[in-house]
Design a protein around this nucleic acid. Sequence first.
DNA 1: GTCTATACGATGATAGAC
DNA 2: GTCTATCATCGTATAGAC
Lengths: 191, 191
Amino acid sequence: MNKTKKQIVFEAAAKLFMEKGYLAASMRELAERVGLEQASSLYNHLKSKEDVLRKICLENADKFIKGIDEIERIKNDPITQIKALIHLHINIAAEDPTSVTVFNDEWRHLSEPYLSDFLAKRRNYENRFKAIIEKGIQTEVFKAIDPTVAFYTILTSVRWIHYWYKPERNISIEKLESDIFDLLVKGLQKE
Amino acid sequence: MNKTKKQIVFEAAAKLFMEKGYLAASMRELAERVGLEQASSLYNHLKSKEDVLRKICLENADKFIKGIDEIERIKNDPITQIKALIHLHINIAAEDPTSVTVFNDEWRHLSEPYLSDFLAKRRNYENRFKAIIEKGIQTEVFKAIDPTVAFYTILTSVRWIHYWYKPERNISIEKLESDIFDLLVKGLQKE
DNA sequence: GTCTATACGATGATAGAC
DNA sequence: GTCTATCATCGTATAGAC
């Protein structure tokens, strides 16, 4: 299955945004990377630089929303739900690390009203993630630590997996998943 | 104790870098914020935009290096050392959240040779942090999970505390510290 | 120490020829 | 679909008057 030039351009843009950051990435360099001599030629394949960023941010936000929709629907107890959330973050990051990096690090360069839309989606996801932890604490499945601290510590450690996890490290994603689960849920210390 | 204009300019720059990102922060806006009409007037107080970034990155890198120096010197067992590392990250972040945010998020805009210097320092710190975890695993104080996974999961969760921890949340830094320690070392799950 | 004036390059994007 | 030509704007930074 051949990629369209549009797909090639969008993927190269995501990679460039990841490597240099959105602002430092120039349309002229993007053109070079896809074999075009002129930046102006890019505009047959995309509407604007920000439009590319918008699509990346939106796509990934939707992946997380869909993921937590299903977790809330299918799973019941907080432990299983946390396990599924870790699974969700790792799988999204492993599937398309470039795109998820841009989503995580460059969303703040969205202009309004896209920025507000994005933040609303993110808040929605985070509130639901946090509610799962709160339920676990209330039902005494989890320790009585501050729910905000627990929530952000867990979210932060799974949110930036793409920063360091490279398949070259010879850790399978199954091992990654179960080690992170063991660490966060059962603790680093041996009994 | 009065602040010199230089201090005022440097602090405003750090805040601007944090709020907009280094590249999006302009010298013209910085001038406005410190009550100067012209960006050119700033150059009496700083050498260049990047020079400000360099100082921020270097200062914070040194704080972490000094911190781990002392931890290696004074503490013995891995559990106490991990506790002290969590303490270190939280204290540095609480002391000057603006500066540590810029240090964490904007270092990649350093130019050579400063970038290489910075990365060397960071690698040094991370290797020593990781060695503490590895020692814990070898001496069977810690679980036999992959040391790289354990290291990055813990580092990531303490490295981005400044993203969400605000004193307004009414969590004291002592409580923050002990909750994060409980979560990471003893696990979220209740016995 | 702050100002005016200015140099100089890079940026995203558009119009129109081919 | 790619090119040439071009635009308006903004970026950091310097020289020199006051």
